[in-house]
Computed example of a mutant assay.
Amino acid sequence: MRAGSHISLQKLVSLVSLAASSETDESPIDIGNRRIPSRYFLAPLAGYTHLAFRRVIRELGGLGLATTDLVLASQLVAKSRKSQQLVATCESDQPLSVQIFSGITAELVKAAKWLEDRGYQGIDINMGCPMAKINSSGGGARLMCDVDGACTAVSQVVEAVSVPVTVKMRLGWDRDHLTAPALAREFEQCGLKAITIHGRTRQQGFHGSVDLDGIRKTVEAVQSIPIVGNGDVRTPEDAIAMRQQTGCAAVAIGRGAILDPWIFRKLADQARGLEPFEPSRNDQIEFLKRHFTLMCEQHEDYSCILFRKFVGWYGQRLGIPEDLEDRLRRFESIEEFNEIVEQVAERHGERVATVPTALLKVPNGPVERW
């Protein structure tokens, strides 16, 4: 290489990613009668994908469809306070789908009708949650164990509403029961408009690696509905690789969006042939403040508790020194938050750790005890 022609590894990766993204279809995608502007979605994450997070991510640009935290169908119809907070939305929070779960088909139908009557434009049925308290009632990934029962539930929800119905599921209960391709084939005949596949089994929880071949087999099992890949997407390169290796029509990003809130903006830049955006120090500080401000609009002082869980994910990406991250995990007032953020701005970049504190943090013990 001639003198003066040196190119950094980061720049090289960026150029390779730009070339790869040019080979993928980046046009808007249709899910039923809904046109989604981007093929990169925000996946539902229990405890995280509430209104404030969706809004602040949308403001950064590049996000297609977002889906709410999962909501218990019976509580939604009963209008419990928690369920109403989970489905809270606003004009700028579009396109949006609401994810519901239950082991009782009649409850799923009632919740779907309730949502349609109130103007929600997309309904997602959860068949992927691995948590025991969800599975023990017959909901979440447990639905995948009964193909006939799952198809009955999907058919009845589809027949009950006119808005598009989708499903998010895993590859199966365990490696011996990989039912996703068979279910996807049947769901398409039931009238489902799209399926999101997390490339792990329920038994894996969030351990191990995503099985891209398993996602590809699900893609091959359907005739025309979009299959959305999900799992272990933490960079734009991961998202593009998933699409190229599985043939999935779109990618849903969960934890990767908390680790790097600008991931959708970067994917949009790459789709336009631009070098991916990198946030400045001020961008990072403003994002931290904006997310908390939006959370306070809905939850007021309780935001001081709700926001703490984000800090372990944000610390490394937003350049928060370890001692200030620790304080943000324990702050008790809006005034204290503002004081800490001022110190973060002054000391931005002093952080030593290169791995986010909360990366892949899961409950202790086997998945059966979650």
Rank of each mutant, 00 (worst) to 15 (best):
A194F: 01
C190R: 11
D117G: 11
V344G: 03
P164I: 06
S14H: 10
N135G: 10
T179N: 11
I123Q: 03
G312F: 04
L143W: 01
L143G: 02
G229A: 08
I334M: 15
E300Q: 13
N126L: 02
K168Y: 00
H299I: 12
T196G: 03
D323A: 07
S80L: 13
R2A: 14
Q203Y: 12
R185Q: 09
G119C: 05
T89F: 06
L359A: 06
P226I: 07
I225C: 01
L86M: 13
G349E: 07
G312H: 07
T357V: 14
E325C: 09
A112N: 03
N135Q: 11
C129F: 01
P181K: 04
H348L: 12
A250F: 01
K289T: 11
H348W: 14
V157T: 02
V147L: 13
K11T: 15
S38E: 10
T357E: 13
A358S: 10
I334S: 15
I36P: 00
L178E: 03
S14M: 13
V228G: 01
L318H: 03
W370P: 04
K361G: 11
F292K: 08
F53S: 02
Q284W: 07
A132Y: 09
P276A: 02
G231R: 06
A358D: 12
G103I: 11
G256L: 06
Q85H: 12
D232G: 06
A150Q: 04
D25F: 04
Q245A: 11
S38G: 07
Q316K: 12
G138T: 07
K113Y: 05
L96Y: 00
G231P: 04
D124K: 09
V165M: 03
D30W: 12
Q298A: 08
I7F: 10
R200C: 00
I258H: 06
T293K: 15
K289P: 11
L108N: 00
G149P: 05
I123D: 00
V77E: 01
K79G: 06
M1L: 15
F206H: 05
S80N: 12
N135F: 09
Q121E: 12
D232R: 09
A43P: 02
G122Q: 15
R243F: 02
C145S: 15
T89V: 05
S136M: 14
L212D: 08
L212I: 11
G47R: 06
K193G: 00
Q343P: 08
F310W: 06
E336H: 10
A221Q: 03
R369W: 12
S137Q: 14
F310D: 05
E300R: 15
K217E: 06
K11H: 12
Q298M: 14
P356H: 02
E275D: 14
W173G: 03
R58T: 01
H6C: 13
G229W: 02
R347I: 07
R255H: 02
L306R: 14
G64C: 01
L324Y: 01
M169K: 02
K79C: 11
D269V: 07
C248Q: 04
Q284T: 08
E297S: 10
I57M: 08
L183W: 00
T354R: 15
T235E: 03
E336F: 05
L96Q: 04
F277C: 02
T354H: 11
D232N: 07
T246Y: 00
